[in-house]
Write a protein that binds this DNA or RNA. Structure first.
Lengths: 231, 231
DNA sequence: CTTATATGGTGTAAATTTTACAATAAGTAC
DNA sequence: GTACTTATTGTAAAATTTACACCATATAAG
């Protein structure tokens, strides 16, 4: 094999850390591998990139095949290419993370693996390949990004309470101390892109909270006036 | 050709945005292409990744072959993989940026291209391939990173004046208003990891400034005490 | 229906950080 | 020695961040 040919003995893939928020906790969607290598192990959903497919498109495809969702938030994070990261050959993988609303979709593992399900982030361990490292990178990115862009809303239903929103931030940021309730509400409301609905929370055994929603147009105005999201 | 084979009809490369700081301005090191495609055009230095080479190693190699420098700051930024980004085939490229001290090295274009030289960032335009887009991403990353980590020092000689340091920040950040001199000095000195030397600036036609240097050990202490670099 | 329980919702004062701003000091050039 | 250029330093006002506690309103239990 000529030297130039050997450059083409490689493939590239995308892997997707799909974050969801459920039961007050950050979750990720994993597949269980149905074949070697790492048969039976949990792994990030991913696939080889098709020859005529852009990277972002491949990441969207993986997500859509698994969840049926389109148009969700997706961000490229980092590329992993250690020589021996894949037992069967040289495969470099581009890691993405996406944010989905848990429950707004059915999971279809068939196209990928023997099974797939949500895992509490706190219970994830020992993934296939270098996927623990990939997860760490994506989580770190999420923690940063969630403070500088209004991404939290991608993980919540269209209408949510301020406590749910704060719980989300507390969970994602995982700070030694929880955010202060009054200060959090003051700050997020002062930005002016959350709109109060006239609906209330239902089915709770206590005073129901008001439901709010994120107004994208108002957020654009907020940006155009020179403000920045910073939590 | 079988479908699986077609996955291997691709290659990957690294491209490196090498930043330097000279004459009060941010500069980048470009090569001039000696062969098609884009013959004669200026481009980012880069190369295919060897079959047994890690991505970071490839980026270090490109930098070392061009400048002779090792151990400089290098950071992966983003991967570009549009189907048609390379006229000769499917090549995805992992973009890195590095920070070097201009003048501490000789440039050796031979291994890459017909020539190579530093360009003022403000005068760079119309690069080969999608390299303008890559440059934009790296510059954006640098702008963010320089405020949250003590990277500026990588672009300066070991001993520098506070005015040089501020000039660097003004240049990199390119804000509508320059930083305030007194506030800048107060803030950076209060972090406690710049050490004043007993030397003075030489060869200037005005009061010479004190020279300072960055103390990496003191910076580690600063971090361990829970502070964060934030400028 | 009364009480227990749980979360929702709200304001203010102190501490800290950020901002704005100008006069003197110390060199070289002529 | 005079002109010129950049170096160096402090303070007051404004803005932001932090800390903190009580009453409201719903369901659940008795």
């Amino acid at each position: 094999m000529s030297e130039i040919e050997s450059f083409f003995k490689s493939a590239f893939s995308v892997d997707n850390v799909i974050f969801g928020f459920d039961e007050g906790e950050l979750n990720i969607l994993l597949i269980q591998r149905g074949a070697a290598p790492y048969k039976g192990k949990w792994a990030l959903p991913g696939d080889l990139v098709y020859p005529n497919e852009d990277l972002d498109t491949a990441a969207e495809r993986v997500l859509e095949q698994l969840t049926g969702l389109r148009g969700v938030y997706l961000e490229q994070v980092k590329t992993f290419g250690s020589v021996n990261r894949h037992p069967l050959g040289r495969v470099i993988t581009v890691a993405y993370f996406s944010l989905v609303k848990v429950g707004k979709h059915a999971i279809n593992p068939a196209s990928f693996a023997q099974s797939a399900r949500w895992h509490k982030l706190s219970e994830v361990k020992d993934l296939a390949f270098d996927h623990n490292e990939i997860l760490d990178s994506c989580l770190k990115r999420l923690k940063r990004k969630v403070r500088t862009a209004p991404l939290g809303f991608e993980l919540l239903p269209p209408k949510f309470t301020l406590s749910e929103l704060q719980q989300l931030y507390d969970s994602v940021l995982d700070l030694p101390k929880k955010l202060d309730k009054r200060n959090f509400r003051k700050k997020i409301l002062s930005m002016g892109f959350l709109v109060e609905s006239d609906e209330l929370q239902e089915g709770v055994a206590h005073r129901p909270a008001k439901l709010y929603s994120f107004d994208r147009v108002k957020y654009e105005k907020f940006l155009n006036e020179g403000y920045v999201f910073d939590l």
